[in-house]
């Protein structure tokens, strides 16, 4: 596909407020995709999204097997919600998601974040959510730049051709 944009996007500010595998990856793919194209990227993790940049949780993200109408069995049959409550099912489904992503060369969360920062992307944590979950800077992934307020984040989202994306 040919893309010719006369007034190209310069900066994306991405907000990640949810902590399931697919929500976090939506953020990471969008942020990494931006830096790959030479677009500045700033990412703000808040509420359960903080799991993605919390040392203890970032390797253990899960996909919801309950309350997820898009869930299907391998092969495409509907996935009964009641199955999702059986112990181990959520872990199994999450494992399959991660395996599927690995096949597509999509890295684990930590490595993905490193790819984004290697390209100049910046990662921030939400102050209010960090206080709510009692998280300090040292609990967070080492390259998180800072814990900041919503106002601080918006202050970085100015400028021409900037978009705010909420995943």
């Amino acid at each position: 596909m040919v893309t010719k944009e006369e007034n190209p996007l310069k900066k994306v500010c991405i907000i990640c407020a949810k902590g399931s595998i697919e929500d976090v990856y939506a953020t990471l793919v969008m942020a990494n995709g931006a830096v790959m194209e030479g677009i500045e990227a700033k990412v703000f993790f808040t509420f359960f999204g903080l799991d993605a940049i919390t040392k203890k949780q970032m390797k253990k993200l899960k996909t919801a097997t309950v309350g997820n109408p898009a869930m299907r069995m391998p092969g495409g049959l509907p996935f009964p919600t009641l199955l999702g409550v059986i112990p181990g099912v959520e872990a199994g489904v999450s494992w399959m998601m991660k395996k599927g992503m690995d096949k597509l060369d999509i890295p684990p969360v930590g490595e993905f974040l490193e790819m984004i920062t290697a390209g100049g992307g910046e990662i921030f944590a939400c102050k209010m959510a960090a206080e709510m979950f009692k998280l300090k800077k040292e609990d967070l992934w080492d390259e998180v730049i800072d814990i900041i307020t919503v106002g601080d984040f918006y202050a970085m989202c100015g400028g021409e051709n900037t978009q705010i994306i909420f995943t």
Partner: peptide, 10 residues
């Protein structure tokens, strides 16, 4: 990124 600034793979 340093070798090919502003879009390394492209």
């Amino acid at each position: 990124y340093q070798l090919f600034p502003g879009g390394p793979l492209k």
